[in-house]
């Protein structure tokens, strides 16, 4: 329960005064410094509360095993063949699902007094958001490394080699950072973390499963195919697949980066708008 009552001592007035008068006043923290400070905070939280990483480990394992063995035979003839197609997709799936927590944590944070302090500081406003999203890089790295390693064990053979896989993971970091702005928008707009979860879950479901992650869109009905192909998650999955197998075309890469740009342009400005308005 609560901590044992600590002995309460009288404070030493002269050392108090010294600490107050002797303080330097550095010039204000720059944008990068402030963002990095907030990123450090996010990393410390992962360090002190490591269970928030467990989702990033368990879900990717579940999805990889589930889809490979349950659907693999039906979709591609054999689990081994399906793995070649599906594994790059499950990496995207795992990371996309993890990115939702960015919005939920943000919302939890905003409900606390902590954010009041941050907002009363003379730092670049978006640094709070950017910093915590930078801290999420660790979470995303874990969530994407797990299915890759598991896939290699199960027989996934990326034709792009190590370089291809690393490039794919790097691109995925960028994509997830872009996608996370969608969830942060919900995070700043809604009242409670539960409401955020309730609102983002269906959307996430549609984005992730209504994509080319699991199956080739050319097998879909003609009305659905263009919808699925327009999904930014599909573009990202195509790039990740292409990089891992060494077959990415310039056109695919351009679409992939364009999808990231569109997500940021569409969702970052309203997020900042609501974030700034929240304090008024």
């Amino acid at each position: 329960m609560s901590a044992p009552a600590a002995p309460v001592n009288d404070l030493d007035r002269s050392s108090l005064r010294e600490v107050l008068i002797g303080s330097e006043r550095p010039s204000r923290a720059g944008r990068t410094a402030a963002s990095l400070a907030f990123a450090w905070r996010a990393l410390l939280k992962i360090k002190h509360v490591p269970d928030q990483l467990s989702d990033a480990i368990i879900f990717p394992i579940m999805f990889t095993l589930l889809f490979t063995y349950l659907f693999g035979g039906a979709v591609s003839g054999s689990p081994a063949d399906y793995l070649q197609y599906f594994l790059p997709g499950v990496v995207v799936l795992a990371v996309a699902l993890t990115s939702m927590y960015t919005g939920i944590t943000l919302n939890q944070d905003m409900a606390k007094g902590t954010f009041d302090r941050f907002r009363s500081l003379p730092v670049w406003r978006p640094s709070v958001l950017v910093g915590s999203m930078l801290g999420d890089v660790v979470r995303y790295a874990v969530a994407s490394a797990v299915p890759v390693l598991l896939g290699l064990l199960l027989g996934f053979r990326p034709e792009g080699g190590l370089v291809g896989v690393l490039l794919a993971l790097l691109f995925l970091q960028l994509f997830t950072f872009s996608l996370a702005w969608v969830w942060t928008l919900f995070g700043v707009m809604m009242r409670t973390p539960t409401a955020v979860q309730g609102a983002t879950f269906p959307l996430q479901f549609i984005l992730v499963f209504g994509s080319n992650i699991l199956v080739d869109p050319s097998t879909m009905p003609s009305w659905l195919e263009p919808v699925v192909s327009a999904n930014p998650v599909s573009h990202a999955a195509t790039v990740v697949r292409g990089l891992m197998h060494g077959s990415a075309t310039p056109g695919e890469l351009v679409s992939g980066f364009a999808a990231c740009a569109v997500l940021i342009l569409l969702f970052a400005p309203p997020t900042m708008y609501f974030y700034n308005r929240k304090q008024r």
């Binding site: 550095p26 939280k45 002190h48």
Partner: peptide, 20 residues
């Protein structure tokens, strides 16, 4: 206004970093 999931010292270092 301090972070419950950080130590006291980490909270102070963070505050100092944010003050430049």
């Amino acid at each position: 206004t301090v972070d419950e999931e950080l130590t006291g010292r980490e909270n102070l270092v963070l505050a100092a970093l944010l003050r430049g």
